[in-house]
Write a protein that binds this DNA or RNA. Structure first.
Lengths: 312, 312
DNA sequence: ATGAAAGCGCTAACAC
DNA sequence: GTGTTAGCGCTTTCAT
């Protein structure tokens, strides 16, 4: 196959018999061009299969119109729903979305922020929990600050406030609600299926649960706590451990819907009837949670927005 | 907020007291640079929060490392699973993914191919059904051909062969399998919940169903056929219509899992017990289909791959 | 090993 | 209205 290079604007101009500038104007609609010439330019462009080089365009100062999205994993319904929203809004505004996976690794996240910045995105959306580790959070905050200072917009979803626009659910209150719900139902032998303790979301939800327990004269130590990946598989693995070591539990709180779904799946395989034998709760109200078998009881978290003082 | 511009390589060079070329080499590792100078360059870059301009880099001839992904909607589990795979593989190869929604509109798809091409992606992944309309398919094929000719790689998922690498399930056989399954169970009063007839996937699955019916002395006309959006919501809407006009059906074939999920959800709301009162079948083996309530019977489609003769 | 300089393809002054 | 030209920020010869 002959690998013919992409044709350039100058090629179009040549074929149309006009100057580079005229071709640019005709195609971009930036200025008035005689309709006859404009037509010739468009024809030439079509004939050559001309596609403007976005890089050259960006370099020359035209608006780039790209946004960056960093999420844990698009495969997780919680994030795919966020991605859907971001892509829809972006598209409506003629913005292309660069998507990447943090996989909940601070370093990966940081390097993605960098390459998204390198691509001169005009906005950055980071969704998912922040990290308990102050150092990596500080690095991220710095990077975002620099990005903001050079004109970039940042939105954080489900992550602690960082001087940028933020939407974050009240994880502590949510944790308390979940625990109180089970406690009020009389459950005492409860298991917590948690994500990695490196995540602030996990930390916060646990704190909420702890405070609820406190109100009942109990503490987290009275519960069975398993940590695992904050994913469906992580939930399934945790359910296995749970069944082996603490088969007596009457209720499970999974710290997100993905893990809850994994727990439910494993219980279903083992023939354990939910909620008759064991109650299972999740978080986040992920799309699809209502469709699970058995239906998942999930805590819808009220979100709070922070509009950054740096906002323009 | 003072909007300080992004610093450029020349700024780094200046601070490090070296030439532009040396700074470039030190940062890019392209050639040998005295370790002392290299260190100064890296230090300067860090101090200035320097992030190379990917556009300038691309324009200057460096590899761009971007791929484009066009899917119906990342919110649909079928597509988010594909997106997950694409992003993972791309990331492992240092490639950034530009994602966009076709929303199953040929024009939108075409314009996305163009802007992805404009961004000089090295590969393009189109996932989802093709269109019955020959004209729009031809336009797309042309665009992809041009892209391929200029060195781009194309992969089609779930779409008819177009002289590029393709992975496509055997939709006709799948349709027949689904129909035969129900027919063998004795069902005769069957409803088909289909996506838009503009999609080849819908057309093919219906053709398979028709052939199965034919083997039983029946035709599609003997069934109740509803068309709707090829989504969860589309399935729910179709289920409503179905219940109103043909409450006697004993089985439903939804032409994809998204619609099947919508049907199940609506049946659940109405207190209709599946599969006791009505059987429901889906397609695609979408992740999560096994988690639905009630469990969805879904046809796993054997896929066939085509490696394009144009492949390099 | 290092620097000077020539583009990459385009837009936006700036002339006419 | 149209053409000429100077960059945008970088990589890469080409000298040295």
């Amino acid at each position: 196959m002959s690998t013919e290079k992409n044709s350039r604007l100058i090629d179009v101009a040549r074929v149309a018999g006009v100057s580079l500038a005229t071709a640019s104007r005709a195609l971009g609609g930036t200025a008035q061009v005689t309709s006859a010439k404009a037509a010739r330019v468009h024809q030439a462009a079509a004939d050559l299969g001309y596609v403007p080089n976005a890089h050259a365009r960006a370099l020359a100062g035209a608006a780039t119109r790209m946004a960056g999205l960093i999420i844990h994993d698009v495969g997780d319904p919680y994030f795919s729903e966020i991605a859907r929203g971001v892509v829809e809004v972006a598209e409506r505004n003629g913005i292309l979305v660069l998507i990447s996976h943090s996989r909940r690794e601070p370093d990966r996240e940081l390097s993605h922020i960098r390459s998204l910045r390198a691509n001169r995105v005009e906005a950055l959306v980071l969704a998912g929990s922040g990290y308990v580790d102050a150092d990596s959070e500080e690095e991220t905050a710095n990077e975002l600050r620099t990005f903001g200072a050079s004109g970039g917009r940042v939105v954080l979803v489900g992550r602690h406030h960082m001087d940028v626009d933020t939407v974050i659910p009240d994880n502590v209150a949510g944790g308390a609600t979940a625990a109180n719900h089970l406690l009020d139902l009389g459950h005492r032998d409860i298991a917590i299926v948690a994500g990695p303790s490196t995540l602030t979301t996990v930390e916060d939800r646990l704190a909420g649960i702890a405070s609820a327990l406190d109100g009942h004269g109990m503490s987290l130590d009275d519960l069975y706590l398993v940590h695992g990946d904050f994913t469906r598989d992580g939930g399934a693995v945790a359910a296995n451990k749970l069944l082996e070591t603490h088969p007596s539990v009457s209720a499970v709180i999974a710290l997100n819907d993905a893990m809850a779904t994994g727990v439910l799946a494993r219980f279903r395989e083992r023939g354990i009837v939910v909620p008759d034998e064991i109650s299972v709760m999740g978080f986040n109200d992920t799309p699809g949670a209502a469709d699970t078998n058995p239906a998942l009881t999930t805590i819808r978290l009220p979100s709070r927005s922070w509009e950054s003082s740096l906002s323009r």
